[in-house]
Amino acid sequence: MTWAPHVTVATIIERDNRYLMVYEEADGNKVYNQPAGHLDPNETLQEAAIRETLEETGWTVALTGVVGVNLYTAPSNGITYFRTTFIAKALSHDTQRPLDTGIIEAVWLSYEELVARKDQLRSPMTLQIIEEYRAGRRFPLEVVG
């Protein structure tokens, strides 16, 4: 039997004590999440994080570090996700760029606003990884090959 988790990436972008989030439709619900998505064939994890952030938010970013690598098994479908979460700096925003299908909008939310929306987060990992980032958890980009 072959078991393979889904490889995904996410990006934490903080500016003025606010986090860039996507408000999206997932599994029939409207939820908040970091810009995130699946690794495509023939791309690096870093390339995937930059691409997904641009596609979901219209923001071009520069990666500056890694917060962590986590496993999460979604109770809704039983799929296990192997997620690398990067830290990035916002560089520029293309307001005319269409966002990925399912993305309602990109929004900047404070930590307090995220906590208030805890029931609307895509998964518990959404807030958990921000709390790890806020606690100072940082690794250099070089930890990811």
Rank of each mutant, 00 (worst) to 15 (best):
N77C: 10
P140W: 03
G145R: 09
A4V: 13
G102W: 10
I130M: 02
W3E: 03
K89F: 03
R97I: 01
P35T: 01
Y111H: 12
E52T: 00
W3S: 07
T73K: 08
S92Q: 12
A135Q: 05
S76V: 13
Q34S: 10
Y32M: 01
E47L: 00
T73H: 00
V107F: 01
V31P: 05
A88I: 02
I103G: 02
E112L: 09
F139P: 14
R18L: 04
I129L: 03
G65Q: 13
A48Y: 09
R15G: 06
D94V: 02
S123Q: 05
A135G: 02
H93S: 05
P124D: 11
T85G: 08
E14L: 15
T60A: 10
I13T: 11
P75I: 15
Q46H: 07
N33H: 06
T44V: 06
R122Q: 02
E56C: 01
L20H: 05
R117T: 06
V144P: 12
Y72A: 02
M125N: 04
H6W: 11
F139T: 15
G78A: 10
H38C: 14
P35L: 06
G65S: 11
D119N: 11
L45F: 14
T53Y: 10
E47N: 08
A49Q: 15
I12P: 07
L20E: 03
A116L: 11
T80N: 14
L54A: 11
V66E: 01
L20F: 08
F139M: 10
F86R: 12
L121F: 13
A49Y: 11
A49M: 11
E52A: 06
V61N: 12
A88C: 08
